[in-house]
Write a protein that binds this DNA or RNA. Sequence first.
DNA 1: TGGGATAAGTCAACATAGCTGACTTAACTC
DNA 2: GAGTTAAGTCAGCTATGTTGACTTATCCCA
Lengths: 169, 169
Amino acid sequence: MSIPANTRISERAQAAGPAVEPDADEIDFELIELLFFAYRDFVGDPDLILAEYGFGRAHHRVLHFVNRRPGLTIAELLDILRITKQSLNRVLKELIETDFVEQRAGRTDRRQRLLFPTDKGRELAMSLARMQHRRIDRAIAGAGATGRDVARRFLTAMVGPADGGNETP
Amino acid sequence: MSIPANTRISERAQAAGPAVEPDADEIDFELIELLFFAYRDFVGDPDLILAEYGFGRAHHRVLHFVNRRPGLTIAELLDILRITKQSLNRVLKELIETDFVEQRAGRTDRRQRLLFPTDKGRELAMSLARMQHRRIDRAIAGAGATGRDVARRFLTAMVGPADGGNETP
DNA sequence: TGGGATAAGTCAACATAGCTGACTTAACTC
DNA sequence: GAGTTAAGTCAGCTATGTTGACTTATCCCA
């Protein structure tokens, strides 16, 4: 039985201990570069539509999460996007002024501003999501029977705290 | 036998014809958002190291591809990154001045500037690649036996020309 | 061999989207 | 009533992308 590519490092780790520094030929350059190209094309699709409204990718991200989590607060949105209040405010203001997003004061805490998509906002968000869905759907069709589940688990595990970067502990 | 999640749309397509508009509950919001979070954390790892040199993500991308394809030309690099000559020149100039990248005139065509990493540049590129490799390696370990291969096929299929966006053909 | 095409570099000006720091307003909590 | 918190705002800076116009060196071909 041959050793699958994804166990190379683990094999070496067992032999050499936990502090393994992969050599050039052991680094997964292929996946590193695929992530770059895949993401570039994935976010590039909606750009043409966004440009029609004078919006950019920052507007897209805000509109997307407001549409997906209607009623979320500014603080929650800041936490998801990991940008500053000032950066968010610039694009959010435009989305509100152009009637894609609306705010309502919180019922229990009236300091909070709950964010909701308008009908117009929902339509735009959905049309952008459909574009991205089409690309994902096509990609999954070519990834095998359990493709979606494996891709989901892989990407889920990619999310997490900073690497730390302990090259030689 | 149950229908796998990734065939939902195809099933509907067979019933309704090729022009299928997925409803809100059929759009793969989970993968759309996972790609956003995964990529955010994936490119976020190297940022701390890059900041020590006064570099940003643009420098990282240039250094990465110069290291991976030593001897590539300016035109080839522009084609990979899909940015303008002026944008590239700004960061490339800094990488050359700080001795991370060097240029040599092409042998057959002396108009070309072939790009090579210096020893210093190779070291930095490799150390950043190792950070990203660690995250990928961990993610693949949690994605099942054929995880890497499926992830590779999925991401490969994600790369490609613009979507076109024919919502109602 | 001379003229057009090509690879690269440069100058200027601008847009987007991130950042820090300092401050205000309104509402909540104790 | 005092301190805390959620949000909004002003000012200014940085990084990285864009267009457009132009130069220089070199290549290639008629």
